[in-house]
Design a protein around this nucleic acid. Structure first.
Lengths: 141, 141
DNA sequence: AAAACTGCAACTACAATGGTTACAGTTTAG
DNA sequence: CTAAACTGTAACCATTGTAGTTGCAGTTTT
């Protein structure tokens, strides 16, 4: 399958927060921009808080705000916070150990998959939230 | 989410076929090596046939065989045959066009995601079935 | 004619995704 | 000090994807 929309939504949210880093944005407000429901937003926010990308404030006028400057947050940080450990699913059921192929294939594919995933994450590490924000703002000129 | 085990299973199958390129392997035999059921194998085979990586033979002593030499089949070919078009899921529901962020973010993320996926596919393109087979055979010395 | 296959449809079980409701707890404004 | 606006989280639902299973028509070899 594919990388969850959680990742896409998380970036969307964080870019939104970066538009005014001193403001707390409510999950309801964010949900309207993303066009989804506030609970889904709060679930993702929960992951982002754990990864120390966002801080939240309870109560009236509360909400979420960036925990770090947008220049310091890369898309890889967001990816790590929202996506599971490994991108590739190895075998659903353990291969047959009586078969040459079954015995040896897992570690070999594992290392190729790790290499491929690293190539992907390196690209994500090269882009910061601030750059995405900048592109969005240029787009509207 | 993550990349389906279909991809992993497809590689497993093809490496198995590469052990003897002149033989037809039945879906039952392949299923035993992968430790799954023959129908699941035939469903994946169907995709591989469409991608011209495999030919099948009906009847007694029939089964599947590589349609190309193992040296010419890369993991990227297998990836393309078994995985959907795009790895990343953009928004589940369309973002709010009344929001600066909602309007502009999709194409920007789209191009970053394309770049990231290309980095991944380039790694997959560098490995052929023959190389995986070679590693498996070395492994058992 | 029997046996060994593919190809495919139909049905099932299970897990993941995202939407919805509900509610306890926190904070601010009045 | 109470009402309102928030977060955080659990519970439940609908939908979809994944993989397993059964069944059967059609093909090929013996």
């Amino acid at each position: 399958m594919s990388i969850n929309s959680r990742f896409t939504v998380a970036i969307h949210m964080l870019v939104l927060l970066s538009l005014n880093e001193n403001k707390y944005y409510s999950s309801k407000f964010i949900a309207q921009s993303v066009n989804t429901n506030p609970v889904f937003i709060r679930r993702i926010l929960s992951s982002l808080v754990k990864a120390n990308l966002v801080t939240t404030q309870l109560g009236v006028e509360g909400g979420a705000s960036l925990a770090q400057p947008a220049e310091q947050i890369t898309l890889l940080d967001v990816y790590r916070a929202t996506e599971p450990e490994s991108l590739f699913t190895l075998h659903h059921s353990e291969p047959n150990m009586h078969c040459l192929c079954g015995r040896a294939i897992k570690p070999i594919l594992g290392s190729i998959f790790t290499e491929a995933e690293m190539a992907l994450t390196q690209v994500l590490a090269q882009t910061t939230l601030a750059e995405v924000k900048q592109q969005i703002q240029n787009n509207t000129l």
